[in-house]
Design a protein around this nucleic acid. Structure first.
Length: 579
RNA sequence: GCGCCUGUAGCUCAGAUGGAUAGAGUGUCGGUCUCCGAAGCCGAAGGUCGUGGGUUCGACUCCCGCCGGGCGCGCCA
């Protein structure tokens, strides 16, 4: 990005120079500029004098005065003054602020692009829902957050890979395959009891019908065979399922793989389409099964064992995670010989970091927080630096309907799907709504409210500002590209200054959002920019008769529109020219 | 019981490395379209920042205790 408009960095440089000149012996301290809440305190304020007061044992106002008088002459500073307990308030030269307009018009969709990431390779893994059914609204939050975060990181200068971890190897997939097969038997005219804890959703029936349509009775087996030696469901539901799965595998033989893969392909494809429609795309769909096929799980376990971190107990294999701060040791291999999810997850994380990624960000639901310690512990045990792993926890999106909490469970089939939500409130509103609060804040998603208030959704306020900008240009009828040469020194109205100030802030917001993994900052920023524009629009005519004034104002409008567009793009929200 | 998150205006939420008079939306009330889009704008009312201590020039922010809410603590994923 054009450093000429990075005024904050330039001001900080000036202050550092002044500090160096006025107090050469000062201890090194960060010179940070903040935006004062009140406009009476200038455009930027610095508290470095107050921070130095203690180590230097000097009056902060006295230090500040010294810095201000040593401030190098600069075209971007109109005034610098000492205020309050020792703040240094800086007032921008109007010309410096006006510079942002040509800078934005010049950079276009690249305005806001930074280099703070230095092209460091970052992988963001998100959603990663089991492909055992449609995505629900909880996944939607992870999807919206992860996608927006990845966009923010990318624009901040990171080399981002978006990854979806496909749990295609576990028991849940077997349960789905079993569920599909049982429904298939129903379609084929049989009446096997359908376990309560199998997947109940209608989509299972649909898959069953599709299989029956293609293959007729090829996979039919007698109910007695299916339920041979199966323990009662009401005694141990899980054992009941496991026995059924075992029988299904025995009965179907190689055909079991067909059912399994059919269900997997079907659900994963559905998931992918759903996300695609939601504006969420992935670079890598990483298969858990491939970890096993490549022997990576076994290798990771061998390495843990060789380093003395595994032991046997009760027929199972345990990882001594307590040595790494976990509350208790964890099983990596069950007494039936099956690896746990944890085992493949260890291999997966080792693999991620070995793929040349410098930093891994996992976006997880908050209910997985207890999982962090053991994964980090396992990485540490294998000599992999867990500091390269950041887990961004996204709190629950709790759904309300009719003022009551909606129970969500994929297995019971009682959930509101992401697709359903998108259909009700629209993709734009859904994407925006999801990132409108910080990730560690619980999200109360009131469906009735989201539906009934869809016209009041804050996203429309921002899109409306964008449409207004476009409409001004349409009304004007001139060539939008021609405003680039406008004389921006004419932008001196209060509303214009507020807009300029907000436009200048955009790169700062990107930087903060990337640093804090907080895409919600972008959403809040866009609201403020839209507000500044709406206010300006109502106070000042843009299409005036004065040609140069009109050109300057149009240039400002074009800049606002560009930044709204850039910001909305980060959040995956469209920027319509008409509404 | 232990761990993570959380408590800010009637409601939903922002408050970056501790900074100046704690902000926005929504709701309520009052203004505002012979004029570029009223899905807008302008104004008013609305607060013991859960609570009690501590740290210091200064605490919504950091530390400790307590109270309330959510989640987790499986040979499930």
């Amino acid at each position: 990005m054009n450093s000429a408009v990075d005024l904050r960095a330039r001001l900080a440089d000036l202050l550092r120079a002044a500090l160096e000149n006025s107090i050469p012996q000062a201890p090194s301290v960060d010179v940070v500029l903040e935006r004062p809440k009140s406009a009476d305190h200038g455009d930027y304020a610095c508290n470095v004098a107050m921070r130095l007061a203690k180590p230097l044992k000097r009056n902060p106002r006295e230090i500040a005065t010294g810095i201000v008088s040593a401030l190098p002459e600069s075209e971007i500073v109109r005034k610098a003054e000492v205020a309050g307990a020792g703040f240094i308030n800086l007032y921008l030269d109007p010309g410096a602020r006006q510079q942002v307009v040509p800078a934005i018009l010049d950079a276009g969709s690249d305005y806001g692009r930074l280099d703070v990431g230095r092209q460091e390779k970052v992988q963001v893994e998100f959603v990663s829902a089991n492909p055992t059914g449609p995505l629900h609204v909880g996944h939607g939050r992870g999807a919206a957050f992860g996608a927006s975060l990845a966009n923010v990181l990318e624009v901040a200068g990171y080399d981002v890979t978006r990854e979806y971890y496909v749990n295609d190897a576990g028991r849940q997939m077997d349960i789905l395959a079993l569920s599909t097969w049982l429904r298939y038997l129903e379609v084929a005219g049989q009446h096997p009891p359908f376990p309560e804890n199998a997947y109940q959703g209608d989509y299972v029936r649909e898959m069953a019908r599709a299989i029956y349509q293609q293959h007729a009775k090829r996979y039919v087996h007698a109910v007695e065979e299916v339920y041979c030696d199966v323990p009662a469901a009401d005694v141990d539901g899980e054992a009941h399922l496991d026995a059924l799965i075992g029988n299904a595998k025995d009965a179907l033989g190689p055909d079991y793989g067909y059912i399994h893969d059919f269900a997997l392909t079907e659900q994963l494809g559905d998931c992918r389409n759903d996300l695609l429609e939601f504006g969420v795309e992935f670079d890598v769909w990483y298969s858990e099964k491939s970890l096993f096929d490549a022997g990576l799980v076994a290798t990771a376990m061998e390495q843990l064992d060789a380093r003395g971190h595994l032991y046997q107990k009760d027929g199972a294999t345990w990882f001594r995670s307590t040595e790494f701060g976990d509350e208790k040791d964890r099983v990596v291999r069950r007494d039936n010989g099956q690896y746990t999810y944890f085992a493949s997850d260890i291999a997966y994380h080792v693999n991620k970091l070995e793929r040349g990624v410098e930093r891994v960000i996992d976006v997880w639901g908050a209910d997985h927080h207890g999982y962090i310690a053991r994964v980090e512990g396992a990485l540490g045990a294998l000599g992999v630096d867990a500091a390269n792993l950041t887990v961004a926890l996204v709190q629950f999106a709790v759904l309300y309907r009719g003022g009551k909490k909606v129970a969500m469970s994929t297995r019971s089939g009682e959930f509101v799907s992401l697709r359903e939500l998108r259909g009700e409130v629209g993709n734009d509103a859904a994407r925006f709504f999801y990132v409108l609060r910080k990730s560690d804040q619980h999200l109360d998603f009131d469906l009735d409210l989201a539906k009934s208030q869809s016209n009041d959704n804050p996203v429309y306020y921002i899109q409306y500002a964008h449409a207004r900008c476009s409409s001004v240009f349409e009304k004007w009828g001139g060539d939008p590209d021609s405003v680039g040469n406008a004389d921006c020194s004419l932008l001196v109205e209060q509303g214009e200054v507020s807009c300029l100030q907000k436009l200048l802030e955009f790169p700062e917001i990107i930087e903060a959002a990337a640093r804090d993994l907080a895409p919600h900052l972008v959403a809040f920023y866009l609201r403020e920019l839209a507000a500044a524009f709406h206010s300006y629009y109502n106070s000042t005519p843009i299409l005036t008769d004065d040609e140069s004034q009109r050109a300057a104002r149009l240039a400002l409008v074009a800049s606002v529109r560009q930044v709204l567009r850039n910001g909305l793009a980060l959040l995956g929200v469209s920027a319509p020219d008409k509404m």
